[in-house]
Design a protein around this nucleic acid. Structure first.
Lengths: 187, 187, 187, 187
DNA sequence: CATGAATGAGAATTCATTCAT
DNA sequence: GATGAATGAATTCTCATTCAT
């Protein structure tokens, strides 16, 4: 792990705990065990650190979700745990993603990163699905992606915000929904 | 509107735009057109303003969502617009709610406010539903609430974060889902 | 003397000794015996302090030089001391004026302040002279002002830079020159 | 041009534009296209660079002014352009010289460099003049040098600070003055 | 009640200087 | 000789909070 990554990792750790604007460059330097000055060798300013972090987190998210959609599409529909739907790695980044989303409402560049990421995710998903099921049109696939990601977002937010347990009766509904969305999945 | 409310309204306006920690007490004083000193007469510190604001926003949210669930439960299932599902008033507060959620991960008191609110919302909903359909058990109702709020959260987040339009094919799926969740709703 | 003037006076004192950019806001605060924060209540930033100081010094300079030209024009031409030509008050500001001039080469706003001041000085002088000697044209007066100010600038710079004493034989030359420039002055 | 000169040339270029204290060692390294470390091989610290630069500039100035006084002393007194009096090379260094002068008020070593230079200039001039006109005494020559340099300084400062054009009627006065100072010059 | 001047700790950022390679 | 990564003190500026009027 080079210096730049070391600093970014420290920034992520701090910002997960305290948020973007509650984290000082001092904090990051301490966490990364480098001097403040060095941070400015690698990143023009704090803004640039946040941008790099957002890009990084979002890319990891895309990779995870790509794998995730595929997994859901092919797994047995009878889930038993919400954790089956939203993997822990995704969820552990969600706090950062909420920060990112808040930030995106005020910061054009962050907003663009998010839009691009979603576009990429969508394209990947459609390509994959069309390879698997050449008979479907892009629109129908897009809708599936949309529904799935709605649910996933919802679960994530729910868990984070209210830390409520998932209703035990939820799974049958979810299974039915997935069945609607992926009628081809094995019963 | 008394002084205290006037200050809180100013705080909300500022914090919607800039976030909790990017908003200074000076900003709020200017927006509320009162002196800084007066703000400290009504609120112990900035933390107290944020807490009051969170409580306030969350309460308004509960009121809206209470009305909303009832509306969804009884309206014709054939929606045509995502706006039918998530009212604009709810959405306009979502940015604040994301801030709140971020804050909640670091601030025990905020977290408690959120938990209490969700509990209240759930209880209200279950009570209402049981009055309408005495034959259902609380668990099943709870599940319905959960699924609906998942979807709603998902739609909100989606709109805010990625500003993606809702897929045109989404509505049939949504209608089917609502039908599963509210099998008694008029077709 | 109000707060704003108190800060400006402290800034002047510091900047005379250390120059614009070697003077920290901390220094000014200490000298003025106020907190750093208060300085920023009265001046947007350090740049604004410098601008205010320049304007202030230049205005005092104009007042002095206005009086000075008039004095030279009417005094007996047989001077004995360079101090007769350039009053001490003017000279004591010259270090600041050198700073100002350096600054002016990089800072458009400072440059404009200097230009405006010289224009004002010139206009004042021409008006005065024309009242005293209505037969003269503005051009000739302008030339006199120019020659006088050249000499004055030269003396000032000389004294500051090299701290050389004035040549004892200089005065007869100077007298002759003034006589050329002001042929009407009493011999 | 060796390394040391290359660095000094880069320092001069930067400091003409930004001033001594607004120029960073990093700036100089970049301009000179050498590493920061190398600069500290040739110069103990930034102070030493400034001193070397001042010495260098002042020496070039002396050479120019030596030539200049001689030129003025022997040229036809009927000048037409201020540029004839103060050569462009001199003027282009004036911004640096103002910096130097400001610096000299705070820095003993710089002040000494300036004094020594002026002494050298004076001695050279007197030696030259006495060779040309053995009948004159040193005092009278000194006075001439003084008057000439006053005027020259004045013109320079005037042009830099106020960027005022020279009054068109100035030249006859200047010619008359030079005639006073150098009565032996060809008419 | 109401004001806003005043404070000073803390944040972001820069830069002269060192030193291991 | 030559490099440039690394340091951290110093600088500018902000902002929550207090308090005399």
């Amino acid at each position: 792990m080079n210096r730049s990554e070391q600093i970014l990792a420290a920034a992520e750790q701090c910002m997960r705990l305290k948020g973007f604007h509650q984290t000082s460059v001092q904090n990051i330097a301490q966490q990364a065990d480098v001097s403040i000055g060095l941070i400015y060798k690698y990143y023009k300013n704090k803004e640039a650190i946040i941008e790099a972090l957002v890009t990084n987190v979002v890319q990891r998210m895309i990779t995870l979700l790509n794998a995730d959609f595929e997994r859901i599409a092919h797994m047995d529909v009878h889930y038993h745990q919400a954790e089956d739907i939203v993997p822990v790695e995704v969820e552990s980044s969600i706090i950062l993603l909420m920060e990112v989303s808040s930030e995106a409402t005020r910061n054009q560049r962050i907003q663009q990163i998010m839009k691009d990421a979603w576009q990429e995710l969508k394209n990947n998903f459609i390509t994959q699905e069309q390879q698997r099921h050449p008979e479907q049109d892009a629109n129908a696939i897009h809708t599936r992606l949309y529904v799935m990601s709605l649910i996933i977002d919802g679960i994530i937010i729910r868990r984070c915000m209210k830390q409520a347990d998932i209703s035990p009766d939820f799974m049958p509904f979810f299974n039915a929904m997935v069945n609607d969305v992926y009628p081809h999945a094995p019963a």
